[in-house]
Simulated scan of single mutants.
Amino acid sequence: MRILTFVPDAEVKKLRTPIICLYKTDKFEIIALPLVQLDTVSAWKLVSHVLLLWLALCWLSTGTIYKIALVMTAPLKPKIGELIALLIGERSEAHPLEKHIALGTFCTWLHDPDDDEVLEHATIVSAANIFWRCKDVRADTIPLSKLQLARALADPPLATDFVSYFTTLQSSMDSLTNIVSFFMFCPDNVVPSLNKAFHFIEEGGFVDRSQSAEDQRELLKLRRRKSTLKALWKERAHTASFVWSANFTLPELFELAPDDADIFKITEKVLKRPERLRRYFETVQWCQHRLQNSLEPSARRKIIFHRLPETLPGLRPNIGKFDRDQLMIISSYRHK
Rank of each mutant, 00 (worst) to 15 (best):
T5A: 13
T5Q: 15
E11S: 10
K13F: 01
P18R: 08
Y23H: 07
A32V: 05
L33F: 12
L35N: 02
Q37K: 14
D39G: 13
T40G: 06
V41S: 09
K45E: 14
V50T: 05
L57K: 05
L60M: 09
A69C: 15
L70T: 10
T73P: 06
A74T: 15
E82M: 13
L86G: 02
E93D: 10
E93I: 02
L97M: 12
A102Q: 03
D115P: 04
A122P: 04
S126C: 02
A128V: 05
I142Y: 00
P143Y: 08
L144E: 01
L153A: 08
P157C: 10
A159P: 06
T167F: 00
T167S: 08
S171V: 10
M173E: 02
S175V: 07
S181W: 06
P192A: 01
S193H: 06
S193Q: 01
K196L: 05
A197T: 01
G205W: 01
F206V: 08
V207M: 06
D215S: 05
D215N: 04
E218R: 15
K221C: 03
L222Y: 03
K226F: 07
A237G: 05
F242Q: 10
F248G: 02
E252L: 09
L253Q: 05
D260L: 09
D260C: 12
T267R: 11
V270G: 07
V270D: 04
K272F: 08
R273P: 01
L277K: 08
L277F: 04
L277H: 12
S294A: 14
P297R: 02
L312R: 01
G314N: 02
P317T: 00
N318S: 12
F322Y: 12
F322N: 07
D323G: 13
I329C: 04
I329D: 09
I330Q: 02
S331Y: 04
Y333R: 07
